[in-house]
Structure formats: structure tokens, C-alpha cells
């Protein structure tokens, strides 16, 4: 499958690959000025669901590397990445979406995984092959939650 297909219809979500729409499939998006202005699903995310996806070890598992004061009730915050406190003051929604979809577009060579990408990966375990880590809706939910992290 191609890398990231630039949709000619800006802001319109397209399902790629399989003819049948899959909830796990990769969604096309358009990068504008280094960020992704339009929702991957065309709908706003749900911050509560985003908080859960961010914490869930099988989904975002963002706390593997990050900490956040708002997530103080969750055990085991990582130290590999910066604190997510105030992240919404530092980044607009479009940039936060880019960071979650593929942080390497903003931080070249970063250790942070790209959560909505499947091309260009090496020896992916069979059970995860061809799937992004987070679905389009989960990305939107996580972005919605990140938008609440203001100082």
C-alpha cells in the first residue's frame, strides 16, 4: 500500500487499501504547512475516549514515555518524552494531529512512534501488519483530549 495518500479533496477522509471499509484501516489526510488541519474522520473527537486510548497499553500507551498531571491517577509514567502538561498551549489542533499521526514529520528522527501510519515499517509482527496503531477515530479522540491539556 502507498504511504500517505494526499487526498485531492482536502479535509475529506478516504479509506485506503481494502475495498471494504475497515475500522482499522489507514485514512488519507492532507498535510498543510506541516500540520493536519482536518479531522481524519470528518468528526470531532471525544476527549474522554481519547484519555482512555492514551492510557491504554494496547492502544496509545503514551504514558510509556510521557507524564501528565491530569493523569496522576494512572501508575507508571515514563521519562522518555516531555510532560504533556500545557501541550495545547504550545501546539494548535492541526499540529497535535500531526504529532499523533506521525511525530517524525515534526521531530525528525524522534523515538516517538507514528500512530497512524503503516508504510515504511520494518518487520512488523504479523498480527499488527497493515494496521496503524490507532484508528482514525482514536487519533481524533486523543487529539481532542490533548486539546484539554492547557496550563
Amino acid at each position: 500500500m502507498n504511504a500517505i495518500l494526499r487526498s485531492s479533496i482536502a479535509g475529506y477522509a478516504l479509506l485506503l487499501g481494502a475495498a471494504t471499509a475497515s475500522a482499522e484501516g489507514l485514512v488519507a489526510y492532507e498535510i498543510v504547512d506541516g500540520a493536519i488541519p482536518a479531522s481524519l474522520t470528518g468528526k470531532p473527537g471525544d476527549p474522554e475516549a481519547g484519555r482512555a486510548a492514551l492510557v491504554n497499553r494496547k492502544l496509545g500507551n503514551c504514558l510509556a514515555c510521557h507524564t501528565a498531571t491530569d493523569l496522576g491517577d494512572e501508575p507508571f509514567h515514563g521519562e522518555v518524552g516531555p510532560s504533556l502538561d500545557g501541550v495545547a498551549d504550545r501546539w494548535d489542533e492541526a499540529s497535535l494531529r500531526m504529532l499523533v499521526v506521525n511525530a517524525k514529520m515534526i521531530y525528525e528522527g524522534t523515538v516517538m512512534p507514528a500512530f497512524h501510519r503503516e508504510a515504511g515499517l520494518n518487520r512488523v509482527m504479523d498480527s499488527f501488519a497493515g494496521k496503524p496503531i490507532l484508528t482514525a477515530q482514536q487519533v481524533e479522540d486523543v487529539v481532542a483530549y490533548l486539546k484539554t491539556l492547557k496550563e
Partner: peptide
């Protein structure tokens, strides 16, 4: 130094650049 897997990480990402840091627990 080669990145592998869906998480796209190399041995060096964890053991060279981040030793001494917690990754989750």
C-alpha cells in the same frame, strides 16, 4: 540502529539514547 516493528524503534532508541529513563514501569 535499525528501527523495527509497528512501533518503529531501534535498540539504540531505548538502550543508547534513553538508559536511565523509565519507559512506563
Amino acid at each position: 540502529y535499525t528501527r523495527f516493528g509497528q512501533l518503529d524503534m531501534a535498540c539504540a532508541n531505548c538502550h543508547e539514547s534513553n538508559y536511565g529513563n523509565y519507559i512506563r514501569a
